[in-house]
Nucleic acid binder design. Structure first.
Length: 486
RNA sequence: CGGGGCGUAGCUCAGUUUGGUAGAGCGCUUGGUUUGGGACCAAGAUGCCGCAGGUUCAAGUCCUGUCGCCCCGACCA
């Protein structure tokens, strides 16, 4: 007996009903993660990890094109080392995990499990940087870090998470600032091209910058529910860390100088961003560039003669082009397979059955918009191959990006007064607010207190909405992007 | 760290009010019939009822404690 009157997926909570539950449903049902007995520590399952591996591969290539080298630092930081930079330790101390014993021996200097590795890189740079000839160093590492969060959610906020952290050190401030901006651009390009996720590049306000940084830049994305998510950060440190850790080099003018540093990172949170940017009530929708399976082939009536042979032919054709293809010849019904791969976000599905074979065609369905098209199998499968490649490389990425951009546009509101902010949020729901700001922390706090939205960043791309601060009415310095954040 | 919810089969949950043989649906295994949107029949397997004490002839159920998870806030990638 059919139990689901036309409803394709019975198991997922709908987005409108409960977005948070929809999110965790997808994480579990698409087999991205599983919880463990340690709060905030997730098993990233093969399908979820494969997404991360694709993110890693693409980003790592981009880093290497820009001259970065990978290294690996220890996971432990002695307390004495962590203490060296005042702002840094104050920022991170509340959320570090401590190792206090080695076996049964109590440690003299307890060790923190790295929440981030600035201190380790600084200690190392102090050892290896002596001359301007040693600069720059463009280092990166792919590791996990630990932050003892109170509230945890898969991918968005876990106690241990995977990330990359780039740490660079340069002769001049200009060079370091250039590096900071270049890496922010690198992240934005990756998010927009590979993840099909539009982002706003901007600078964090002073109250929101990284502990120990002179300036923090970020890319901000808007999720489907109208909440903002910081998708990546890039920090300029000036010579503050160098001074705290005693890193000095002899310059071209034979003078002792402090070098200038940067750090930048993205995390497995990006997987959360993908889910909440593109997902729908049928499940995950994956950008082709990072989808573990880009095309799934579903044979219909597969026991009938010739069906599996033809399906295998299609599989081999696509495989030979370097696509990540899966042929599902399991005993599950076609309907089950359709729903399953939609849940898992596979960008393109190919259906092939006896009727198709008779007509020399197949059906190609596109996940993000649900469209189905009949495609010819004539011409030695060339037309078919070209159609699928065009979908994976062009049609789907562009379509997904535009859909996400459209959603962001519909949820971005320009406001001149606090009342307008409150009204916009009430009438249209959560989203980005663009509003002018005088630069005072007092006003920033008040906007958050009164309207509920905090400053996300000061966008690089500015437009003048008004010449006075949305809060105090004094002359405005910058347009700020505000929002409720994850 | 505040507020709320929940711990019983792999999953979703019933059973707790009023103590008395451990349950359902889904999933899983085997065999068969099916296959264009989560198929059907038959036969199976699966439980420290979160954990520790206590009350009782008897505890999934009552009492005390404890641990964990989820959601909403404050903080963070």
């Amino acid at each position: 007996m059919a139990k689901n009157n036309g409803k394709m997926v019975e198991a997922i909570t709908s987005m409108d009903e409960d977005f948070a539950k929809w999110y965790t449903d997808i994480c579990k049902k698409a087999e991205l993660v599983e919880y463990t007995s340690v709060k905030g520590c997730m098993v990233i399952r093969p399908y979820g990890y494969a997404i991360w591996e694709n993110i890693q591969r693409i980003l790592d290539t981009m880093f290497k094109e820009r001259g970065h080298e990978n290294v690996c630092m220890p996971m432990f930081i002695p307390e004495s080392l962590l203490q060296k930079e005042k702002d840094h330790v104050e920022g991170f101390a509340p959320e570090v995990a401590w190792v206090t014993h080695g076996g049964s021996e109590k440690l003299e200097d307890r060790l923190c499990v790295r929440p981030t590795s600035e201190t380790l890189f600084c200690e190392h740079y102090a050892n290896i940087v002596h001359s301007y000839r040693d600069l720059p160093k463009l280092y990166n590492q792919w590791v996990s870090v630990v932050r003892w969060e109170k509230t945890t959610r898969p991918f968005l906020r876990s106690r241990e998470f995977l990330w990359q952290e780039g740490h660079t050190i340069h002769e001049t401030a200009d060079e370091a600032i250039w590096e900071t901006e270049r890496m922010l651009d690198c992240y934005a390009e990756f998010c927009e091209k590979s993840l099909c996720m539009p982002v706003v590049k901007g600078r964090k306000t002073d109250s929101d910058k990284f502990a120990g940084a002179e300036a923090t830049y970020a890319i901000e994305a808007l999720m489907h529910d109208g909440k903002a998510l910081q998708a990546g950060t890039s920090h300029y440190f000036g010579d503050g860390f160098a001074r705290a850790f005693g890193i000095q080099y002899t310059s071209r003018e034979n003078k002792l100088e402090y070098p200038h540093q940067t750090s930048w990172g993205v995390t497995t949170r990006l997987i959360g961003a993908i889910i909440m940017t593109h997902g729908d009530d049928n499940g995950l929708v994956l950008p082709p560039a990072v989808a573990p399976v880009q095309v799934v082939i579903v044979p219909i009536a597969q026991k009938k003669e010739g069906v599996l042979d033809k399906a295998t032919e299609l599989y081999e054709k696509l495989k030979a082009c370097g696509l990540r293809v899966k042929l599902d010849d399991s005993d599950n019904s076609p309907g089950w397979k359709f729903a399953e791969y939609e849940m898992r976000g596979v960008p393109v599905r190919v259906e092939i059955g006896p009727k198709d074979i008779e007509n020399g065609q197949c059906v190609v369905a596109t996940r993000f918009n649900g469209e189905k098209a009949v495609v010819s199998l004539e011409n030695n499968l060339e037309t078919f191959k070209d159609t699928v490649i065009d979908l994976i490389e062009n049609v789907v990425p562009e379509g997904m990006f535009n859909k996400a951009l459209e959603n962001r546009k519909n949820k971005t509101y320009q406001c001149k007064t606090m009342d307008e902010i409150i009204k916009a949020l009430e009438e249209k729901g959560d989203g980005f607010i663009e509003a002018m700001w005088c630069g005072e922390e007092e006003c920033e706090d008040k906007v958050k207190e009164v309207t509920g939205v905090g400053s996300r960043c000061i966008p690089n791309e500015q437009h003048e909405l008004s010449d006075v601060c949305v809060c105090c009415g004094k002359p405005a310095k910058k347009m700020v992007l505000w929002g409720k954040a994850y």
